[in-house]
Amino acid sequence: MTQLIDYLLGGLGSGMIIALMALALVLTWRATRVVNFAQVGQAMFTTFVALTIQTLTGSWLVALVAAIIAGALLGVIVQYLVLRPVRRMDTSGAIIATFGVLIALQAAAGMIWGGDSQAYPQPFGNTALTVFGREWPVSAYDLVVVGFGVVLVVGLTLLFTRTDLGLAMRATAFNPEVARLSGVRVSRTLTIGWALAGIVGAVAGVLVAPTSAISPNSFDILLVFAFTAAVIGGLDSLVGAVSVGIFTGLVLSVVSGYSDSSNAPVVALFLLALNLALKPEGIFGHSKARAV
């Protein structure tokens, strides 16, 4: 029992990162009805940017800020150059275009920073915390990760519920035509959605990098986990993405703990397939997964 609790606690940090990446996928989906398969590519790229800044300045926080700026910029660039023109085309085209961006970003990162895995410095202690005379499978860094996640989620929630911009974004997600008629500048709203997604993804990238090292392909598996969480969460729902994301992290941690970490992708795949077969609209969502 204590073992199970340990495994669950150990999955908290990675769960939060999956949740953030899923959140980024949901933000772009809500904005433009496109699943941005390049999202982890963008996050990988901005994390490399952060690593460069970190090496130059030595400050983890400055590097994080750089990643956030780069993430927002990259989100806007991808949306403006690729997705805006492609919206007029078929869904296949949009999906393929995001994969094109992913391939290009990974290659560009490989060109600039090389293909090998690079360690990302630990800003805070990564040793297990000792509280109540017992070692817990949670480090100070895990708490920082969870803290950042909570701040982002609360911030986004406030943005969506308390501000005019949030209202405009919700209206646009619900029905772009109606939103346009009620005076929302739809295209600007969509671009902001992509920028927000870029920021969330960038934070997730910087947060996950110290625990796993970083290479052009190192986030591929995160894409699978995040997509799984986003889809099970309903793809439309911020709450769904975050809660299922954390849940996915816990499940994977328990699976890895009791068996082997290489089982994690298979388990995620199983969850995804099960969800798509039984309840394709997700637990929290209303979007339509079924084609026919």
Binding site: V35, F37, T91, A94, F99, A277, P280, K288, R290, A291
Partner: peptide
Amino acid sequence: RLSGPYLA
């Protein structure tokens, strides 16, 4: 049974 992005 799945549409575009879900299948991808």
